[in-house]
Amino acid sequence: MSSNHYFKHEGPWSDAGDPLMCTDTGDWRTRRPVVDKDKCIFCGFCAIYCPIQVVEMKGDTHFEADLDFCKGCGICAKECPKGAITMISEGEFV
């Protein structure tokens, strides 16, 4: 990934070359988006509207959220024009 271009000379505290901070946001989730691959028409609306941009293209057939970071907000399910995404309680998966 491209690194800090302009402030490199400022000092070690401003060098973002080190691994980025990352919070386990997948752990916040109470519901997870589950995609019905048959209903998915591969339009990508779920991907563009996901605030954390973790809905990924799977080949050329469907889209799927990265559950390590998905916060479970439900925007993808709401915006899917085909209703292909269902939010299911995390309790179902333990």
Partner: peptide, 23 residues
């Protein structure tokens, strides 16, 4: 495919797990 994806020409420079509220 939505044409919005065509505008996303560059990498996302942010870490995936960032502390903003859901939604």
């Amino acid at each position: 495919l939505t044409k919005v994806l065509d505008y996303l020409k560059h990498d996302d420079p942010f870490s995936k797990g960032v502390a903003f509220c859901p939604g």
